[in-house]
């Protein structure tokens, strides 16, 4: 992973582990991405990927229990956008696995109602990594800006 230059901008947002606070992260991501001149669909999909990551932290790392911190650090330079989503809950090893979303669209009884978040993140982002440091779990999502 490249180190960030002095011209980088970094913004940190901290929310409580409550699903009704996730939209605030979404609005912040949307606003920043919009300022970068990305198209509406790309902006939407980046917001979606970050929201999915924060939802995962709340639902799975904290078991949907409120009162715990989720921090999102947004870093941007001319080459890339990076989102670091960190929690202090349970380490989610499944985040390190690749996920496919396989289903038969004609078979309505077996359509997935969940488990789509990781697939969305993998589809939208150029690089996804997960690590544990000092008791904090961090999911790092990167989107290249200069293609």
């Amino acid at each position: 992973m490249e180190s960030l230059s002095k011209q980088d901008v970094s913004i940190s947002i901290r929310v409580d582990s409550r699903l009704d606070q996730v939209h605030m992260v979404g609005y912040a991501v949307h606003g920043i991405c919009s300022q970068l001149g990305l198209g509406d669909i790309v902006v939407y999909q980046i917001e979606l990927a970050v929201v999915e990551a924060v939802n995962n932290a709340i639902k799975h790392a904290y078991g949907s229990v409120a009162g715990h911190p989720v921090e999102v650090v947004i870093s941007v330079n001319e080459k890339r956008l990076q989102f670091e989503i960190c929690d202090e809950g349970e380490t989610l090893h499944f985040l390190q696995k690749k996920t496919d979303l396989e289903f038969d669209p004609r078979n309505k009884t077996n359509l997935p109602e969940g488990g789509m978040g990781l697939h969305i993140i993998a589809q939208v982002m150029d690089d996804v990594s997960y690590f544990v440091r000092d008791g904090r779990n961090c999911l790092v999502l990167c989107k290249c800006l200069s293609k």
């Binding site: 939209h23 979404g26 939407y44 917001e47 979606l48 929201v51 999915e52 939802n55 309505k108 009884t109 359509l111 997935p112 109602e113 969940g114 789509m116 978040g117 969305i120």
Partner: peptide, 20 residues
């Protein structure tokens, strides 16, 4: 303006609730 995968899952669930 915005639907995430949980919202989409709720729409899928609604379709499945119709039972064909």
């Amino acid at each position: 303006d915005f639907i995430d995968s949980t919202g989409l899952g709720a729409i899928v669930s609604s379709l499945k609730a119709m039972g064909g």
